[in-house]
């Protein structure tokens, strides 16, 4: 087996290693493929669909699709970015996202993607669902209004923390993240240092008493779009 695989992303010739996904190989080559449910170190989930690219004309999620020699990938095109905007719009209207007072604002990956893709308002009607907040735990809270069902907490808790505190229950529009207890987060063995807490891309799972610590203007995505670090080759390895 050859040590490298040659393929093409948006007219650019790319080399990747066998076993890499499209997203990983692209990232290594300084190409950012927008993503949300993907997080380095966790099993790819393929659920948000933001990272969908066309592979030889067929849609595939870049976070789960392995690279193959000669494949032609369309990523940063008006068509794909338009479809991604639609998905982001869906996530915004599906929940209750009040950016103006959210502790995660400025560091939120959902918001950052919307900024990057130039969304000023979602094209779909807001659903204003009734969702719960679980603030029972002394140090950590869940605000399900902001949950986008990416499963990062589920996977981090299960695979990294070895605790399996979170899991999806229900299906379809009734799907939600539940905790491994009769009712409350306080009844689980979650702790401040759990990877699961770090893994949340939005403000659905947060530590208490540390909100708004970084002033506006100094937050992750205040000045540069999400993915800029990958595109400038600054920090591809650690970038999420």
């Amino acid at each position: 087996m050859s040590a490298t695989i040659d393929f093409i992303i948006d007219d650019k010739e790319i080399q990747g290693r066998p076993g890499q996904t499209i997203l990983e190989a692209a990232q290594q080559n300084g190409i950012y493929i927008p993503r949300l449910c993907y997080r380095e170190g966790l099993v790819p989930h393929g659920s948000c669909r933001i990272c969908t690219v066309l592979v030889n004309g067929r849609p595939q999620s870049a976070c789960t699709q392995p690279i193959a020699p000669g494949m032609i990938v369309e990523n940063d095109t008006e068509k794909m970015n338009g479809l991604r905007r639609n998905i982001i719009d869906m996530l915004f209207v599906e929940g209750n996202h009040f950016c103006m007072f959210c502790e995660k604002s400025g560091n939120c990956e959902l918001q950052a993607l919307a900024y990057r893709l130039g969304i000023t308002a979602p094209k779909y009607p807001y659903m204003f669902p009734k969702r719960d907040v679980d603030a029972t735990h002394p140090d950590i809270f869940i605000d399900r209004n902001r949950c986008i069902l990416c499963g990062r907490c589920v996977r981090a808790s299960r695979d990294v923390d070895g605790k399996h505190i979170f899991e999806f229950v229900g299906r379809g529009p009734h799907k939600r993240v539940e905790v491994n207890a009769e009712a409350n987060l306080a009844d689980t063995d979650i702790s401040m240092t759990d990877e699961a807490v770090e893994a949340c891309p939005v403000g659905a799972l947060l530590k208490k008493r540390v909100g708004y610590a970084v002033p506006i203007g100094q937050r992750l995505y205040d000045h540069k779009p999400i993915g800029s670090d990958i595109e400038s080759g600054v920090a591809p390895a650690s970038s999420r």
Binding site: N96, H97, F98, F101, T120, A121, Y126, F128, P129, K130
Partner: peptide
């Protein structure tokens, strides 16, 4: 032109929407 989050998504007043 809708100026600001309240015009665009209801904003803080829309907290009552549920």
């Amino acid at each position: 032109i809708s100026v600001g989050d309240c015009a665009i998504n209801g904003g803080i007043p829309a907290l009552r929407n549920t």
